[in-house]
Design a protein around this nucleic acid. Structure first.
Lengths: 234, 234
DNA sequence: GACAAGCAGATTGTCGACAATCCAACAAGA
DNA sequence: TCTTGTTGGATTGTCGACAATCTGCTTGTC
């Protein structure tokens, strides 16, 4: 018996690849909120028939980043200020729980992985690749979920992550400045290594609040503009 | 302008109906955990082509009650003791949060709906229709989520509910006795009407723990049997 | 001019057939 | 006997075509 444990082979169905492609397009903001996804057009661009594309879209609908209206079409979800409030408030609760579960299971491997992801964030920040920066930050944040060893919690986090990533990307795209909060990551990582769980939880909450305020202001701005353009037809 | 607000028209795609049919079959235990869903057989039984059936299955995969392995098939999820532990521990956290959000929004309509659903549980209990009893209990429980006015939280709850309902149905099916806990619902409803939020949260947690213990014992039994039958081939 | 009916055009939903893949049984060789 | 190919059947993945539905425009009527 060899000692190597192989990772599962990659899914090689067109469907899986389409899901990945579409998800990325949505989460990076290449597909804008509210935009309609024309099946024929996309399937031709991808050189794929509509069947696997439609199945992929069904998955993303259930994932919460697309929405489907029968016989009308499938659309990228709209982002309202309330959605952001909802997502962030739930995020805080889940973070608390995830830290609580992870806390007694922290070991050297955890700390190493924590440093690795923190380093990835710093590198992405230096490279000015904002998309990668967002992904890296969420990956860093997600470690406490992966370590919590609760399958349902991880699923929930991933669903939430999709939305958060989309919100960030939109915000990023609108006002083209780098996300700061570098030092906050620093203290967050340090506290996760420390002995005071409550302090770590508090830090996570504050961290979330920071990002949140900026995003919310942006979303409110969006809605005001939308409201105004909706008034015009009257 | 009329004052009537019409409810949305029913989805009239085959896909939506298939989703409903399959979900019901799974959640009531008619389809057992681990069982494979043969596309051709099911599509013939439903008098439907495989396309909408496959799309429906993709949705249920993302909903977390089916699991798909490329070129191998789509299966009802397996239920392990750990899954139940995970689901219930998350449920406790979410309940806390839902009660907190709902608390300041309680009004007469809330209390009326609470009573209505409580009545539905009692009636289902009397009728000895265990499936309906489970559904009614989960509906009663779900009110705090619907009232919390947090869209992401509701989605999360619904995903969790699917699993819980499945676990209950299996348990129910195995040992054919009625679920007791009637009085616990009584106190739960009373506390939700009262002034002490902490007490309501505590009651919810205890309520959950009760159901949980019974289910867990059942699941552990399942796994032991599974382990034994897996040993035999050796 | 306002309004309803009806008619394309485009798009989504569904179907039946074909291609790719897996699995179990069997055969062949060490 | 154990391992390693091979082969046939069954099942999933994908395709192209057809049917159902929606939308915007035109037409006709008042």
């Amino acid at each position: 018996m060899g000692k190597l444990d192989f990772s599962p082979i990659a899914d090689t169905t067109r469907r899986a690849e389409i899901v990945a492609l579409l998800r990325r397009a949505i989460l990076t903001g290449q597909l804008e909120p509210g935009q309609k996804l024309n099946e024929l057009r996309i399937s031709e661009q991808m050189r794929v028939s509509r069947a696997p594309l439609r199945e992929a879209m069904r998955e993303l609908v259930q994932e919460g980043i697309l929405t489907s209206i029968p016989y009308a079409g499938t659309f990228v979800i709209d982002v309202t200020a309330k959605d952001i409030v909802d997502a962030y408030s739930l995020n805080k609760v889940l973070d608390d729980f995830a830290i609580e579960l992870t806390w007694p299971q922290r070991d050297q491997r955890f700390f190493d992985e924590l440093d690795r992801r923190h380093e990835a964030v710093k590198q992405a920040t230096r490279s000015l690749d904002t998309t990668r920066q967002i992904e890296a930050a969420l990956q860093l944040h997600g470690l406490i979920y992966e370590w919590a060893d609760n399958s349902v919690l991880v699923e929930t986090w991933q669903r939430l992550t999709s939305r958060l990533q989309m919100y960030f990307a939109l915000h990023q795209r609108a006002r083209n400045e780098a996300v700061p909060a570098e030092d906050l990551h620093e203290t967050y990582v340090a506290l996760l290594k420390g002995a005071d769980m409550r302090a770590a939880q508090r830090c996570a909450r504050e961290h979330i609040d920071d990002d949140f305020e900026a995003l919310l202001a942006y979303a409110r701005g969006l809605e005001e503009r939308a409201a105004k353009s909706a008034e015009r037809p009257h």
